[in-house]
Design a protein around this nucleic acid. Structure first.
Length: 799
RNA sequence: GCGAGAGUGGCGGAACGGCAGACGCAUCAGACUUAGGAUCUGACGGGUAAAACCGUGAGGGUUCAAAUCCCUCCUCUCGCACCA
């Protein structure tokens, strides 16, 4: 885990870590070697904002937060290996973040380019595409503007295909997350098609996935940012109007421009393009609905077969030409009320007439390739990852700029490039590092001449894209990790986090891992084998948040009820992946349950007195020496306990269904309350109760580690309950002699019978037919068929 | 619009195609108590005097049997959304 050290932990943390801790503890008790680490995603804006607002140093602000949160987490009793704790703002960590950046740079995966980028005016920094949500800054909700800047990018697009393909292999990931990544990558197969611009030597390339509709093109539209536009309109009579139009569109912010209900507007440029499929000249327009960022920044307008084009054409009176008819029908162009976007039969398409549109798609693509006017291509929505940030509190990008040598990576021996201390923090749009001469001024590692350092820092998502591997050998100082240890531990068997990481963190981490695999630094391509996306913690149906004032501080719950109650509640109140509604009464209920366990164990201890020394002297669970000769009550106790043990084990190991696991323990406790007096009074059954109490405490231990440890000692054991080997249920104990089955007549339950568990169908039916209720239901009809499900039911079909 | 998930008592939630509502909360009753907001025991989907009967968003279907599988639809949540 790698939480951001925001100041205090919240219930979402408690929930996440409680789930992980149950798994870690149970696996460890089951004999596994478990790596259960904790560290801090310690770079980031809040620290810097605190510096600006309160004049504190980001480093000390962060360190203090970490200290507070570490104590809070320790109070909750999570079994973290604190010897492996890391903080990404620690030079011993970011040295390797920088080192990894250089490896990517050497392998052509980190590069610098000038591009229009997303800019958050409030955070005063650029943002990655993934950090822009509905045109606003993902962090502060401020509408994002655009700036043209030279920035560092990571070439994640090179991995688009693999990031997409590998999703199929991630069987342990929720469908939801895979779908989100799939959509984000946005693979789209189509054709780039060249239209000649009439009267010039220029060509205009459009991208389409519907080349089958090429003969229906009645115009072509460019994005307002399209580089060819300038040349097309210069000297034209409408030049000034068009320029004004383009400027208006570009002045709109992202939200307004891309909202679905934004009206499509455009203007003809006065230029014409020639359709390579049929030689027709069509007008070239500029329109607000075409995005420069996607495809080629130009599209063909086929109003008859595309909703957007239809809307646009109707608005501006552009012709609508049908080239695909639905099977067995034909369209009247003037009467169309919308585009026909489905498959059909080609018409008005020359040699392609009569083909099915899916066939024509292939044929036309091949035709265009043959003619040299088109190329089959795959476009992705995924953009390269913009990683520069004009902020101070991040890992410096280990690059210097030399007037004679250009971009020069800092030699590995000189890493880390340290963040300076005592820096001014006013957000100016430049990194504060830029105003820090002792940082900026450097010598070129190549020629020794004067050079200046890169003053931007890295997106903190880089820091969190490799931390899991660092946990394998967190103190290694000659490499980011010791390969032998990484090979032993990685990939992560069970990763737990909120869905909010579905795109950014989880995609970046996958990309990093793949890239490092290709470079040869790790032996695995995918970092997280199993992913559990836990639900949110809600209060009155809304996410707990400081601004809404509907938070519950974990510390308060721990103070009032103890850590075990807090843990038990967040695990019991809902299945892990679903949202959890906070309930003060529910917390109370969990606390009562733990009290009930406490009393049960103490009553047992009191009843057996000093005798228990013999029964519980070992470090394991007490053994019943004579399981086959027990009183009925004692057998009942064993059935309840071993049945619960079976269910708890399976619920943890097979489906991480922790709420039902706890319910099973509660049921077990209820049974023990009902049976304890009878069993404790029977001399010969003493060992049964000893075993029952031991198993109860052991199987509760991963959920409520403190109270169980205490009880374990009260019972008389030495050693820690958390070092006890996870017991195996005794299959003989859960065998039942008699079962209650339902007797159905025509699917309706008419009787419940207790019959021997091994009764045959004939015996069971005979007993059923001895029941008056069954006979009454059968009445005068005759039984034409009987279904017998052993130990469950009989269904008689009567006519 | 596209995609994913979810609709079950007063509430949170259980249920390999096989007795719907485990477990917990709330409520009610009893016991123990000077007392109980503690504890223990019990009741607790609707309906009925008791049955019958009706009940898992709606409607169809498959099946001896459907909360569960299939089809149509409705509602909610989340993600994407002029991506050509």
């Amino acid at each position: 885990m790698l939480p951001y050290p925001s100041g205090r932990i919240h219930m979402g943390h408690v929930r996440n870590y409680s789930i992980g801790d149950v798994i870690a503890r149970q696996k460890s008790m089951s004999g596994w070697n478990v790596l259960h680490p904790m560290g801090w995603d310690a770079f980031g804006l809040p620290a810097e904002n605190a510096a600006i607002k309160h004049g504190v140093d980001p480093a000390s602000w962060t360190r203090e937060n970490i200290a507070v949160m570490r104590e809070q987490i320790k109070r909750l009793g999570f079994s973290y290996d604190w010897d492996r704790e890391i903080a990404t703002c620690d030079p011993s960590y970011y040295k390797w973040t920088q080192w990894l950046f250089l490896q990517l740079y050497r392998n052509g995966l980190a590069y610098r380019k000038t591009q229009k980028v997303n800019w958050c005016p409030s955070c005063a920094t650029v943002l990655a595409n993934e950090q822009v949500v509905n045109g606003a800054c993902e962090r502060c909700d401020t509408p994002v503007t655009k700036r043209v800047l030279e920035q560092w990018f990571l070439r994640i697009t090179r991995y688009a295909e693999r990031l997409l393909k590998n999703l199929d292999e991630l069987a342990g990931w929720p469908e939801k997350v895979k779908v989100m990544q799939h959509n984000w990558i946005g693979r789209s197969e189509g054709v780039d098609i060249d239209f000649a611009v009439e009267g010039t030597g220029e060509k205009l390339t459009i991208f389409t996935t519907r080349q089958d509709t090429i003969c229906g093109v009645s115009y072509v539209v460019l994005a307002p940012e399209h580089p060819l536009l300038e040349q097309l309109i210069s000297g034209k009579p409408d030049e000034a109007d068009i320029r004004r139009f383009v400027e208006d569109v570009m002045a709109q912010d992202e939200i307004a421009r891309t909202a679905e209900d934004t009206e499509k507007v455009g203007m003809p440029t006065g230029a014409y393009a020639v359709n390579p499929a049929n030689g027709e000249a069509v007008p070239i327009w500029v329109g607000n609905y075409v995005l420069m960022e996607y495809g080629t920044g130009a599209v063909m307008g086929v109003p008859a077969h595309d909703e957007r084009d239809f809307e646009f054409a109707r608005k501006y009176g552009l012709p609508v030409k049908v080239v695909i008819n639905p099977p067995g029908e034909s369209f009247d162009e003037s009467g169309m009320e919308g585009a026909y976007v489905d498959e059909g039969v080609q018409v008005n398409s020359g040699d392609f007439d009569g083909m099915h549109s899916s066939e024509a798609r292939a044929a036309i693509a091949e035709y265009l390739e043959r003619e040299g006017t088109g190329r089959k291509v795959v476009h992705y929505r995924l953009r390269d990852w913009l990683v520069s940030r004009q902020r101070f509190w991040g890992a410096p990008i280990p690059i210097v700029y030399c007037d004679s040598c250009g971009i020069v990576p800092v030699p590995e021996a000189e890493l880390p490039v340290m963040l300076p201390e005592h820096v001014e923090f006013m957000p100016t749009g430049k990194s504060p590092l830029a105003d820090c001469p002792e940082f900026v001024n450097a010598k070129c590692p190549v020629c020794g001449g004067n050079a200046r350092r890169e003053t931007d820092t890295m997106d903190t998502f880089i820091c969190s894209s490799w931390y899991f591997s660092r946990y394998a050998s967190p103190r290694t100082d000659t490499a980011p990790w010791d390969r032998a240890h990484v090979d032993y531990w990685m990939p992560v068997d069970q990763y737990i986090g909120g869905v909010e990481h579905a795109i950014m963190h989880l995609m970046y981490a996958r990309f990093f891992t793949m890239a490092l695999y290709d470079i040869g630094l790790v032996g695995f391509e995918e970092p997280f084998t199993n992913l559990l996306t836990q639900g949110m913690v809600l209060m009155d149906g809304a996410k707990m948040s400081k601004s809404k004032g509907n938070t519950v501080d974990p510390d308060e719950i721990v103070n009032e009820y103890g850590a075990d109650t807090a843990r038990l509640f967040v695990l019991f109140a809902a299945p892990p992946e679903r949202d959890l509604e906070w309930s003060a009464e529910g917390v109370e209920g969990c606390w009562r349950f733990l009290q009930r366990v406490w009393r049960l164990v103490h009553q047992y201890v009191q009843a057996v007195g000093d005798e228990r020394k013999n029964m519980h002297e070992g470090v394991g669970v007490a053994v019943v020496p004579n399981p086959d000769s027990l009183s009925p009550e004692a057998r009942e106790v064993r059935r309840a306990v071993h049945g619960a043990l079976k269910k708890v084990t399976e619920d943890i190991e097979e489906r991480i269904s922790l709420n039902t696991a706890i319910a099973a323990i509660m049921e077990c406790v209820n049974s023990l309350y009902a049976l304890k007096d009878a069993v404790l009074s029977e001399q010969g059954d003493a060992a049964v109760m000893a075993e029952a109490i031991d198993i109860l405490v052991v199987m509760l231990a991963p959920f409520a580690p403190h109270i169980t440890e205490e009880l374990w000692h009260e019972i008389g054991h030495s050693g820690s309950v958390h070092r006890v080997e996870w017991p195996k249920y005794d299959p003989r104990a859960i065998v039942v002699d008699e079962v209650e089955i339902a007797v159905q007549v025509n699917g309706k339950v008419r009787e419940r019978l207790t019959i021997p568990a091994d009764a045959t169908e004939d015996e069971a039916v005979a007993m059923a037919l001895a029941s008056e209720k069954v006979l009454a239901a059968v009445g005068s009809g005759s039984v034409v068929k009987t279904i017998f499900v052993p130990k469950r039911l009989i269904n008689m079909v009567v006519k």
